[in-house]
Nucleic acid binder design. Structure first.
Lengths: 190, 190
DNA sequence: ACTCCCTTCTAGCAGTGCTAGATAATAGAG
DNA sequence: CTCTATTATCTAGCACTGCTAGAAGGGAGT
């Protein structure tokens, strides 16, 4: 029965449209503008169909966030493997991370300030999140010395995340971001 | 005319009650539970009186946040001046910062993830914010070397803020927080 | 042709931040 | 003490939110 297959295909295709609609709307007007009614309007279905795909608005945001994690992981991987020099590699990863956050602030927001149920450091952590952290750990590893590489990666990640969020909320002057990044790298590669 | 004075006194007193009500409610049940109706009920006035004190809910949150910044600055100052040893002093400040955030998560949330209009690093930055950053700068200063002390303070602050927020959102295991903090201090005092 | 089932929709609930217009309380003038 | 002007406060409501129950629709299998 190919009918059932077509149905399922259309269904997953519609789910994709929901996610991308949410993402586009958020990037364009912020997450406050992403309402269930506007999403329904965009995909040209009524409101309740959203709830046949996702448990609620939070689940939609989580799906968008997961997409973001996959992209971030890919960017960091590309940055890390572009050069064999460990120092340049770490710098490239850090640059990739902060520029990703700056280019897609709403996506980053969905990934970190919302989406509480996406838990790290546990067994059922989604693959993209583990992949992203793995990139960071690999990049930091050459400079960990006798310290725990995972722990070092965590504090390096925290520093990047702090820079990103504080800059985003106008707590740090954006123009001195490159100098801050250079100084941070200096502290970790010394 | 002492009547006008009494009026104003009662008014500022009521404003205080609004702020503390918002803060208590947030700490107890989270910021989502802080609605204008519940606030009005707590202070035993009708909803619209809130708008004669504050421009909106965001302004109330900003007022709470400002209170939080004053408290955080005081705690950091106390921590920094408890010992003359620069290394122990910096460690104490970092410990004060993270434990403040852990003890009052909703207050910290109001201070950083909301309250967009409280801008740092500009002329009209409120005093408590400047005071808090000054404490951090003082504590970091002995270890800045030839680097810009302010910039070093900024990245140290970012690292602390990153640790706090990532831990809060279940991105980092809480139990290894002390080891992370120690490792971070090691990177900045080496 | 007729059920049956699954999909989708319309309509509505309880809640949100915020505000216009009515009302109550008070101050000053006669 | 009375009356008016002003201020403070409230009631009622708007437009919106996330979400859901029950009706209506349209193919599938007998």
């Amino acid at each position: 029965m190919p009918i059932r297959e077509r149905r399922e295909r259309e269904r997953t295709e519609r789910e994709r449209r929901i996610i991308t609609a949410a993402r586009e709307l958020a990037e364009a007007e912020g997450w406050d503008a992403v309402t269930t009614r506007r999403l329904a309007e965009r995909i040209e279905y009524s409101q309740p169909v959203l709830y046949s795909h996702f448990k609620g608005k939070d689940a939609i945001m989580a799906a968008v966030a997961l997409e973001g994690f996959a992209e971030l992981a890919a960017r960091m991987r590309a940055a890390r493997t572009v050069t064999p020099d460990p120092r340049a590699s770490l710098a490239a990863v850090a640059e990739a991370y902060t520029s990703f956050a700056a280019a897609r602030p709403m996506l980053y927001e969905a990934m970190f300030t919302n989406a509480v149920d996406l838990t790290f450091a546990s067994e059922d952590t989604p693959a993209p999140l583990q992949a992203g952290f793995a990139e960071l750990r690999e990049a930091v590893h050459p400079f960990a010395g006798t310290d725990d590489p995972a722990l070092t990666a965590e504090i390096f990640w925290a520093a990047l995340h702090g820079l990103v969020t504080l800059t985003r909320k106008h707590r740090l002057r954006p123009e001195s971001h490159p100098r801050r990044l250079a100084l941070l790298l200096h502290h970790f590669t010394a």
